[in-house]
Computed example of a mutant assay.
Amino acid sequence: MMTDTLQGKTLFITGGSRGIGREIALRAAANGANVVIAAKTSEPHPKLPGTIHSTVAEIEAAGGQGLALMLDVRDADAVEAAVAQAAGHFGGIDAVVNNAGAISLTPLAETGVKRFDLMMQINVRAVFVTAKAALPYLRKSANPHILSLSPPLNFGTPWLKPYIPYTVTKYAMTILSLGLAEELRADGIAVNTLWPKTTIATAAVEHEVDASLIARSRHPAIMADAAHAILTSPADTFTGQTTIDEDVLRARGVTDFSAYCIDPQVEDLALDLYVDP
């Protein structure tokens, strides 16, 4: 059943205290959704804006209901407890958004084992753990979705060569999602991935990729609008898709993306990782 609203639906978003996760939360809140922000940042960070509490305050100001849960997605027991608490608080869970991520754009020789383990735990294992914990509640939803922020599988040499430790974790995230879509197809639970066509103006791009790209980036709102379109799609048919934000919105009639640009005067937008020209 396709609707244009998430009103009354409950979203469980990992890593949602800032950036794309926060924007998805606020977009859903404006529709009257219940939004669970499950992330590590409980106290203000000296360099990064936003906490789980400030984001929940914004959610409620936007028209939704919020719940702040301090969570390290590497802790499987804590994830299970957080999902149960969220479902108990709001009476169920309708969508899981796997937004938490770890990044290191370094070749294998320069990537520490601990850093690789961190990326595997957050980018891959956490998707497994969170989906597993949420399944009993999603099965009771009228239009259940799992949405992971990971890229289409692009096996071109330019993407396999430069930072394979990070790449393999993000591709594994997508492969897990595609497989889970098939596993859960009979249950009517949609599983999809979403990735931006251009770089998005987030702290990750500014601090981990290249701060000079911010002016050539789009606002996280484009990802929020695309996520909203996916999460309101019929779960029994819109599943197993590896989507790009711009393509999702084009399919819904959007043709002008200039409002999303950080600098409307910049025409040479920076393509995101794994997206070919």
Rank of each mutant, 00 (worst) to 15 (best):
V36E: 05
R74Q: 07
D72R: 10
Q65T: 13
A76D: 04
A84H: 00
D75T: 14
G32V: 08
A87C: 03
A87L: 14
E23K: 09
A57F: 12
I52N: 03
A76S: 08
V36I: 14
R74S: 02
G32L: 15
T55A: 07
G50D: 02
N31T: 07
L71D: 05
R22D: 03
V79Q: 09
A78I: 06
A30K: 10
T51L: 04
L48I: 14
V73D: 09
G50V: 04
L69F: 04
V79F: 01
A61G: 11
P49N: 04
T41L: 02
R22Q: 10
E80P: 00
H53C: 01
A30L: 07
A38S: 03
K47W: 03
A25G: 13
D75Q: 10
I59D: 04
H53S: 15
E43F: 05
G88L: 08
A57R: 09
H53N: 06
G32C: 13
V79C: 05
A76M: 05
D72H: 10
S42N: 08
D77L: 09
A68F: 00
N34K: 04
A57I: 15
P49Q: 02
K47A: 04
S42F: 10
Q85K: 12
I52V: 15
V36H: 14
S54W: 06
A25D: 14
L67K: 01
N34L: 08
S42C: 12
I24C: 14
V35C: 06
N34P: 08
S54Q: 11
V83C: 05
V36P: 07
S54H: 12
R74M: 10
P46V: 10
V79I: 12
I24S: 01
A57Y: 11
G21W: 01
K47F: 03
R22G: 01
P44Y: 02
S42W: 05
D72A: 12
G19H: 08
P49V: 02
V83D: 07
R27L: 00
P46R: 07
P46D: 13
R18N: 13
A39T: 08
G66W: 12
P44W: 06
V73I: 15
A29G: 15
S54D: 04
I37H: 07
A76H: 07
A84D: 07
A38K: 00
A78T: 04
G63P: 13
P49K: 13
A68D: 01
G50M: 08
N34C: 09
A30I: 14
A28H: 12
G50F: 08
